[in-house]
C-alpha cells in the first residue's frame, strides 16, 4: 500500500535491483558451471576410460597444492552459496511481486511475455528439486537405480538404460526446464547487468539466450538420449 512518505538515506545495496544483480551474478556462475559440466558429460562419447579419467582428474586437480577433491570443494562451496543467494533473491522478489498486486485481473492477456519468462519461478523450483534428486542419485548415490558401480561411467550408463526409462525421463524433463530457464535467464542477466541498452544489443542477448539454452540443454540431453537409444552402451 502506498505510504505518502519520502525515503531518507537510501542505499543502492538495499534495492530490488541489488537483488536482481545478485541473481544475475549467481546465474552466470551457474551458466559457467553447467557449460563445464556438460563438456565433461560429453566425454561419455569418448568411452569409459576418458570419462572416468576425467572424473578422477577433477578430484586430483591441483594436487598436492590442493587436497584430494580440493577443487571440487571450492566449486561446491561457490555453487552452494550461489544457490542460496539465487534462491533467496528469487523468493524475495517473488513475494514482493505478489504483494504488489493482490487483486488480480479478471481478464489479463500476455502480449509480449515469452513462456520462458513466465516460467522462471516455477522452472527454478523445478531445477532446484532436480539438483537435489541429481545429487542424491549421482553424487551421494543415495538413490540407486541399478546397483552401485564403482566407475562413474558405468553408473551413468546403467542409470539411463531403457529398463529404468523413468530416470531418463526425469533428466530430459529437467533439461527442458533448464533450457527455458536459460533462454530467459541469459537475456535477463544481460539486461540486469545493464548490457542491453540498444535495440541491437538486446537482440544479441536474446539470441545468446536461445543459443546457450539449445547448446547446454541439448548437450546434456545427448547423454541420456544416446544411452536410452543404445548408441552408447
Amino acid at each position: 500500500m502506498a505510504t505518502p512518505t519520502l525515503v531518507k538515506g537510501s542505499r543502492s545495496t538495499r534495492s530490488t535491483i541489488a537483488l536482481k544483480l545478485l541473481m544475475a551474478v549467481t546465474g552466470l556462475v551457474f551458466i559457467g558451471y553447467v557449460l563445464l559440466h556438460m563438456y565433461g558429460n560429453l566425454k561419455v562419447f569418448a568411452g569409459q576410460e576418458a570419462f572416468d579419467e576425467y572424473a578422477h582428474h577433477l578430484r586430483t586437480f591441483g594436487e598436492p597444492m590442493l587436497p584430494y577433491e580440493g577443487l571440487l570443494w571450492v566449486l561446491r562451496v561457490v555453487l552452494l552459496l550461489s544457490v542460496i543467494g539465487h534462491a533467496y533473491a528469487a523468493f524475495a522478489l517473488w513475494a514482493r511481486a505478489s504483494k504488489a498486486r493482490t487483486q488480480k485481473y479478471v481478464v489479463k492477456k500476455a502480449v509480449a511475455a515469452t513462456l520462458s519468462s513466465k516460467m522462471m519461478r516455477w522452472g527454478g523450483v523445478a531445477l532446484l528439486l532436480f539438483v537435489v534428486f541429481h545429487l542424491l542419485h549421482l553424487t551421494t548415490h543415495t538413490i540407486n537405480v541399478n546397483g552401485d558401480p564403482e566407475s562413474p561411467y558405468e553408473r551413468v550408463v546403467s542409470s539411463f538404460q531403457p529398463e529404468q526409462w523413468w530416470v531418463a525421463v526425469v533428466y530430459l524433463l529437467a533439461m527442458i526446464a533448464l533450457a527455458m530457464h536459460l533462454r530467459h535467464g541469459v537475456w535477463s542477466a544481460s539486461q540486469t547487468l545493464g548490457l542491453t541498452n540498444t535495440a541491437k544489443s538486446r537482440a544479441r542477448a536474446n539470441f545468446a539466450g536461445v543459443f546457450l539454452a539449445v547448446v547446454i540443454a541439448g548437450g546434456f540431453a545427448l547423454v541420456p538420449l544416446s544411452i536410452l537409444t543404445g548408441i552408447v552402451d
Binding site: 505510504t3 534495492s15 530490488t16 514482493r96 511481486a97 504483494k99 522462471m120
Partner: peptide, 15 residues
C-alpha cells in the same frame, strides 16, 4: 529506486 521499492512496486524480471 529506493522510493519505487518503498511505494510497494514489484521488482523487474525483464518480462
Amino acid at each position: 529506486v529506493a522510493q519505487h521499492d518503498h511505494e510497494g512496486f514489484g521488482g523487474c524480471t525483464n518480462i
